[in-house]
Simulated assay, not measured.
Amino acid sequence: MIKEVIVVEGKDDTAAIHRAVEADTIETGGSAINNAILKRIALAQERRGVIILTDPDHAGERIRKIIAARVPGCKHAFLKEADATYKGDIGVENASPDIIRQALANLRTDYQRAEQLIDWEDLINAGLITHPQAAKRRRAIGNILGIGYCNGKQFYKRCGMFQISREEFLAALEQIENEGL
């Protein structure tokens, strides 16, 4: 049994979680997350801890940001878009139990006032900003680091928020460059 409560978007996501692990969930009801749900998530964080596992799409990222802003200290589990897509549909419910367990094993913690270990210049030099392949490179590095895909500004914030070390960053950069990206 996982101690923390896992926050997902809907009942199909809860079913997928239950196929993978024994855990309690809170469903946001999609992107229309309301104050009552946020209060339940805050209570769960206070008493047991919270893991946010939303879909690897725009709506899922929006929900993740809303929760993280209102409920500090949450843990984050990320799925790769390719691992959560079935017939063009992107969602936690499409991920296999093994992929969900893997995401839950590679949690990142949200440090609100974190020291920035990677600076903006590092992202530019790595071709993650203002580069013709920047989005593709950010997606690949985000998957390696376990912080998901996002735009350049959010990638920079996540590097600080999840305390990505310079060593982790450079190792991920080397890996994508070895893969020809």
Rank of each mutant, 00 (worst) to 15 (best):
A103G: 13
I144M: 04
I6E: 01
V7Q: 00
A172L: 10
L123Q: 02
V92F: 04
A140I: 00
E9I: 04
V71K: 07
W120I: 04
V5N: 01
I2S: 01
I41G: 02
A59D: 15
I41M: 08
I52K: 10
T25L: 07
A126E: 04
G148Q: 03
D13M: 03
P132R: 14
R138H: 05
T25P: 09
I90S: 04
A95K: 08
R137T: 00
M1V: 07
I67Y: 05
A134Q: 03
L104V: 14
L170Y: 14
L107A: 14
D83E: 11
P56V: 14
A23V: 04
R101Q: 13
A105Q: 15
H58K: 14
L170S: 12
K136C: 03
I99C: 14
R64P: 12
I51V: 14
V8T: 01
E177K: 13
I164P: 05
R137D: 05
V7R: 00
D110R: 11
N106I: 15
A59T: 14
A95W: 08
V7C: 01
F155P: 00
A23I: 05
A84T: 08
Q112L: 12
V21S: 03
F78N: 01
L145W: 01
A44C: 11
A36W: 14
K65F: 05
M161E: 15
E167P: 12
S96M: 11
A59S: 15
K136H: 02
G10A: 00
D119I: 09
G49Y: 11
I147D: 08
D122L: 02
A103K: 10
N143Q: 12
G127F: 00
G10P: 00
V50F: 11
Q112W: 11
E61P: 11
A16V: 03
N106F: 12
L38M: 09
L173I: 12
D13P: 02
D13L: 00
G180L: 06
S165C: 12
D89N: 08
I66G: 04
R48Y: 13
C74W: 03
R166A: 15
V8E: 01
I129S: 00
A95M: 10
I17S: 03
Y156K: 11
A134S: 06
R62T: 12
Q102F: 15
L38Q: 08
G49I: 11
N106M: 15
A16I: 00
Q112N: 12
C150Y: 09
Q45T: 12
R113C: 15
D55G: 12
R139Y: 00
R64M: 13
A126I: 06
A23Y: 02
L107C: 15
D119C: 10
E46C: 14
I147F: 09
A59P: 06
A44E: 04
L123P: 02
E177C: 10
G142A: 08
F162L: 07
A103Y: 06
T85L: 00
I6W: 02
